[in-house]
């Protein structure tokens, strides 16, 4: 049981780290930032996975994403000191694997289905799917960006001195 949970968490963290390294490469960070991005993404994503999938209390994806992003932000401020690069260089790519891509896709899918179907009942259902997925996606992104940015503003002095 515990081994199964640990395996799931490690697997989740591993794929999140690979995703973070790849997405980090697109925004051209310094080489020393790559391990930080990978570590932050792995911790953040595994934490969100753990918060959402446990027997004690399954937290909603929006709250879980916000908490995970906050933890990424706190760790980023600390790790940025070690990597000697701005905190945002470390945590921006780490947040990208948590961007709710499937909700966004399902919202677009629902939009296409709205265009396909004219019957009122089906159309209303598609509109419901569009609104549900669209709202969830929007609030997850909002939770991610606000949650990760709060520590940078809380520890302003530390955050903006790392390249010194």
């Amino acid at each position: 049981m515990i081994m199964g949970i640990m395996t799931d968490l490690l697997q989740d963290g591993f794929f999140a780290a690979v995703a973070a390294i790849g997405f980090a490469a697109i925004s051209n960070p310094p080489r020393r930032a790559y391990p930080c991005c990978a570590l932050l993404a792995a911790v953040g994503h595994a934490l969100r996975f753990g918060l959402m999938h446990n027997d004690l209390m399954s937290i909603h994806i929006i709250a879980a994403s916000t908490l995970a992003a906050f933890s990424i932000g706190v760790l980023a401020v600390w790790l940025a000191n070690l990597a000697k690069c701005p905190a945002e260089t470390c945590f921006f790519p780490a947040l990208l694997p948590m961007i709710p891509g499937m909700y966004a896709y399902r919202a677009i899918e629902a939009l296409v289905m709205c265009l396909y179907h004219q019957e009122e009942e089906v159309f209303n259902h598609c509109l419901y799917l569009l609104a549900y997925n669209g709202f969830t996606c929007t609030f997850i992104i909002l939770g991610l960006v606000v949650g990760a940015n709060i520590p940078v503003f809380l520890f302003k002095k530390m955050s903006f001195k790392v390249t010194r």
């Binding site: 989740d12 794929f15 995703a19 997405f23 490469a25």
Partner: peptide
């Protein structure tokens, strides 16, 4: 960058 971005998106697919 091309290879890393492709690997990242494939990992993303696994996460979903």
């Amino acid at each position: 960058v091309l290879v890393l971005a492709s690997l990242a998106n494939a990992s993303f697919c696994r996460l979903f």
